[in-house]
Amino acid sequence: MSAVELEPTAEAGPARTARAAGAFGRLFRSELWLIFGRRRNWVGGLILASVPVLIAVVIKTSGAGEGDSFVFGQITDNGLFVALAALTVELPFFLPIAVSAIAGDAVAGEANLGTLRYLLVTPVDRARLLAVKLGGIAVFTFAAVAVVAGVGALIGLALFGAGDFVTLSGSSLGFWAGLARLALVCCYLTICLVALGAIGLFVSTMTEQPIAAGITVLVVTVVSQILDQLSQLAAIHRFLPTHYWLDYAAVLRDPVNLGDLGPGVASAAAYTAVFAAAAWARFSTADVSS
């Protein structure tokens, strides 16, 4: 049994707080470096970014189809809709894959590589390490969403220009108002996906196999989406982690009612809180031997 020490050595109050804050900052920076310095994560980002490029090029060459949904139909009038179309397409599967891979890797990856025990020897408070890991997942999630939206917006504007931003309600907004709506969609989707990341963080503390953890989260996502389609299970739909994801449509209506995003944000916050707490309960007492 080689459980490492759980608490850092006691120190005087303010000095300790300052040192802890500095240590937290260093740890967070190193975590971001770990995520964004990895070549495989860059490849993942490229795959995410390829979807909006594909959509834009296909629609540019062959035009919008007859049966296309509203978001796709608007692309030829306003390039920003490439970003929305890409987010809509990647939301059910591609974005969850990216988040599950990173979240599953968070703790299990370190354990798998054998770096976790060195990390804890430093010594680092385990709750703080988890907070850093969750923060890293959140930053990565936002980056993934922003890459899809950003690449989509850039190539869309380049190929189709910036016309009126037509809302689902049929009103037309200016370019900057449309861009603000797109940014709001990105923020909402980030909040939803971070909840998935928290589930992944919890699973990641249960195993030393990052792949297993990532796949588990992906399975949770897919099963949740399937259950959400079954009308017989309507009673439990609002408890499913993916149920409110498509509510970002509320941002595209006019007049906009941000209260419609409330249930989705509350659901995501609840999932994040429950699974971050569960990850803490598991990890803070786990035997770390690798």
Partner: peptide
């Protein structure tokens, strides 16, 4: 009156002098 669908909306709008019906699914007015 706006009927909200997931990523769609149908609106009936009137100001007393005229009436508009908007359907986002096929962008028709």
């Amino acid at each position: 009156v706006a009927a909200l669908g997931s990523l769609g909306e149908t609106d009936v709008v009137t100001d007393g002098t005229q009436l508009w019906v908007w359907s986002s699914d096929d962008s028709t007015v």
